[in-house]
Amino acid sequence: MKYEKHVFICTNDKVAPKKCCGSERGMILVNLFKEKMKEKGLNKTMRAQKTGCLDVCAFGPGMVVYPEGVFYGNVTPEDVDEIIESHLENGIPVERLRLPE
């Protein structure tokens, strides 16, 4: 496998009335994850990228970390460091942001 972990952040935009991740900071989160992962040298073994709808619109912005398949919701820029340190570096999902399976 090329990457140990893959972070997909929804950037989907759709017409109202549904909430959508794209207009709720999706690309801001993608760029922050990329920047901070590169600063820590994680970009060699892990990848963050934008994706289309993850079907967790009500909890957006949403994201998922593979290979574990852990979904997070209502992610803010302030949460990025915690997700990187806890989940990506130490393998411990951030329970307060984790969406139920």
Rank of each mutant, 00 (worst) to 15 (best):
2 K>L: 02
5 K>Q: 12
6 H>K: 07
8 F>N: 12
10 C>F: 03
10 C>S: 06
11 T>E: 07
12 N>E: 02
13 D>P: 04
14 K>M: 05
14 K>H: 13
15 V>R: 14
16 A>C: 11
18 K>R: 12
19 K>E: 15
19 K>C: 12
20 C>T: 13
22 G>Q: 06
22 G>R: 01
23 S>G: 10
25 R>E: 13
25 R>K: 15
26 G>S: 05
29 L>M: 04
31 N>K: 13
31 N>E: 14
31 N>Q: 14
32 L>Y: 10
32 L>A: 07
33 F>V: 03
33 F>P: 04
34 K>S: 02
34 K>L: 01
35 E>N: 14
37 M>D: 05
37 M>Y: 04
38 K>Y: 03
39 E>K: 15
40 K>P: 00
42 L>S: 06
47 R>I: 02
47 R>L: 01
47 R>M: 04
50 K>A: 13
50 K>H: 13
53 C>Y: 02
53 C>A: 12
54 L>C: 04
55 D>H: 12
57 C>W: 08
57 C>I: 01
57 C>K: 00
58 A>M: 11
60 G>W: 09
60 G>I: 06
63 M>P: 03
65 V>L: 00
65 V>G: 01
68 E>I: 08
70 V>G: 03
72 Y>F: 13
75 V>P: 06
78 E>F: 14
79 D>V: 15
79 D>F: 09
80 V>A: 01
80 V>Q: 02
81 D>G: 09
83 I>S: 02
83 I>Y: 06
83 I>E: 00
86 S>E: 15
87 H>N: 04
87 H>I: 05
90 N>V: 03
90 N>I: 11
91 G>D: 01
91 G>E: 09
92 I>N: 08
92 I>L: 09
93 P>T: 11
95 E>F: 06
97 L>I: 07
98 R>Q: 15
99 L>M: 07
